[in-house]
Amino acid sequence: MTRVVRQRIWVRRDEVLDATEAYEGARRAFYGYTYRTLQSGSWLPAIRWDSWEGQDHVDRYDESGQLKDRLPWRDRPLADVLKLVKTFRRNLLTMDLSEL
């Protein structure tokens, strides 16, 4: 039995962190945290932290929402990712995310 918790966290009017977490009992079986920015009426992904297929990684996207690069990442809770997003915001796009 899987329970999905979906959250949209508004950081600013044109910036959100979309979180999807799947729980099996108390265990977080999957997480996907996507930092999106509003561009020309569309919410485009800028950075995505997730554990798809059990591999923690962080993806970066270009201005058109296409995947640019993928780096390994160590699992962190949503609160930590939100703190990163709120602290660095769009500067995250040029930072070494695997080291944060």
């Binding site: 039995m1 329970r3 999905v4 918790v5 949209r8 508004w10 600013r12 009017r13 996907g32 798809w52």
Partner: peptide, 27 residues
């Protein structure tokens, strides 16, 4: 990927969804 995770959960017996919106900005 997020849709797949959700859709799979909703197909499973007893699977469910909690939906929340948080405004972390005074705007």
């Amino acid at each position: 990927v997020d849709d797949y995770v959700l859709w799979k959960a909703l197909r499973d017996e007893g699977g469910g969804l909690e939906d929340r919106t948080v405004f972390d900005t005074p705007e």
